[in-house]
């Protein structure tokens, strides 16, 4: 066990625990956008920064990636931390002016938009947190989407911005997206995502449309479960 302090509170945690988890399990909230329990972490959004003091040196660290250390003193919302968080939020507000998630978070933390930043109109609600890419790769296993370019031009999408042949229409990317950037439209019989329209399968028992055919085919291929068995929705199984 490792002993340390967060916001004046003495805390014990297993070695290897991240500061973010240690704080949260002790009732100390640290805001995040990109850390999601289902996927590996990248430390991209920088909202979860905290100040870590070791001896005389105090530095800003990313709490979602920083493992706890013996004797370390963490402050989660001092002025230095808030200065970074404020800037990050103002930058994200300017990047994604349409995002209600970011607006709400800003309001919660008392951050106003920076009038000197001209709001972007072409970035949608995407904050490039990469949760979608990671879920597609690590959980689903198809890697249908990825980044393109770098810097200010960096964007999420399918290769060549064309219909992806490997996408199974599962919608995991849309579910995991913290800001609702990824558009998915599901009607009874079809689902539209990343420009492709997928045919939905209806349950052999109740008749309810429950999953894209491509997704069931992919699961069947990967697990060896025959399509016949997968043709029944989870409610009826």
């Amino acid at each position: 066990m490792v002993n340390f302090i967060i916001d004046g509170k003495k805390i014990k945690a297993e070695k290897g625990t991240m500061v973010l988890e240690a704080a949260r399990s002790n009732g100390i909230d640290i805001p995040t956008l990109c850390a999601h329990e289902s996927v590996s972490r990248s430390g991209a959004c920088r909202l979860c920064v905290v100040e870590a003091k070791k001896g005389k040196r105090a530095k800003i660290v990313t709490s979602c990636l920083y493992p706890v250390e013996e004797g370390i003193i963490i402050e989660t919302n001092n002025e230095r931390v808030m200065n970074v968080r404020r800037l990050v939020l103002q930058l994200l507000l300017a990047r994604c002016p349409e995002s209600d998630v970011i607006q709400d978070l800003a309001k919660q933390l008392g951050v106003d938009p920076q009038p000197r930043f001209t709001p972007d109109g072409d970035k949608g609600k995407c904050i490039l947190c990469r949760s979608c890419i990671r879920v597609c790769e690590e959980v689903v296993g198809v890697s249908a989407i990825g980044f393109s370019c770098r810097g200010a031009d960096k964007a999420i999408g399918t290769p060549f911005s064309e219909d992806s042949a490997v996408c199974i229409g599962c919608g995991a990317c849309a579910f995991i997206c913290p800001t609702g950037h990824i558009e998915m439209e599901t009607t009874e019989e079809t689902r539209k995502i990343w420009g492709r329209t997928f045919k939905m399968k209806s349950c052999a028992v109740c008749g309810r449309y429950f999953a894209p055919e491509d997704q069931l085919k992919y699961i069947s291929k990967k697990t060896g479960v025959p399509m016949k068995e997968l043709a029944v929705c989870t409610n009826c199984r």
């Binding site: 790769e137 890697s143 393109s148 370019c149 399918t158 290769p159 060549f160």
Partner: peptide, 25 residues
């Protein structure tokens, strides 16, 4: 060429999305 990028992905068994990522980075 796009055909080449797709072929590289197939040959190396790397998702084309990753090849595209590197090619545009």
């Amino acid at each position: 060429p796009k055909e080449a990028l797709c072929a590289v992905g197939e040959q190396l068994e790397i998702p084309i999305s990753r090849v595209y990522e590197v090619a545009t980075f």
